[in-house]
Amino acid sequence: MEMVIMAAAVIIGLGALGAGIGFGLLGGKLLESTARQPEMANQLQTKTFIMAGLLDAVPMIGVGIAMYLIFVVAG
């Protein structure tokens, strides 16, 4: 049971780490490119939103599987 909880913690932790790095890069690049070309801000915001959707797909599924491990397999 402890190993299942550890596995869920690793899934959530690594997912959050990856999403955090990805969103940090994404937000930083958005600010940088908007400062360079303010007239492109709307298109850049749209592209950022699309990339955010792609970026958080894996952590979201990871959260679902981790909750299943915690509450169904271990619980």
Binding site: I12, A19, L30, L31, A41, N42, Q45, A52, V63, M67
Partner: peptide, 26 residues
């Protein structure tokens, strides 16, 4: 929020919304 003037605010909203979305899903 939209537009170049509000971009830093939008990035803050993006980070906050993503964390809250993951927490809500969990």
């Amino acid at each position: 929020v939209e537009g170049a003037r509000n971009m830093s605010r939008m990035v803050g909203n993006l980070f906050r919304a993503e964390s809250i979305k993951l927490a809500l899903t969990a």
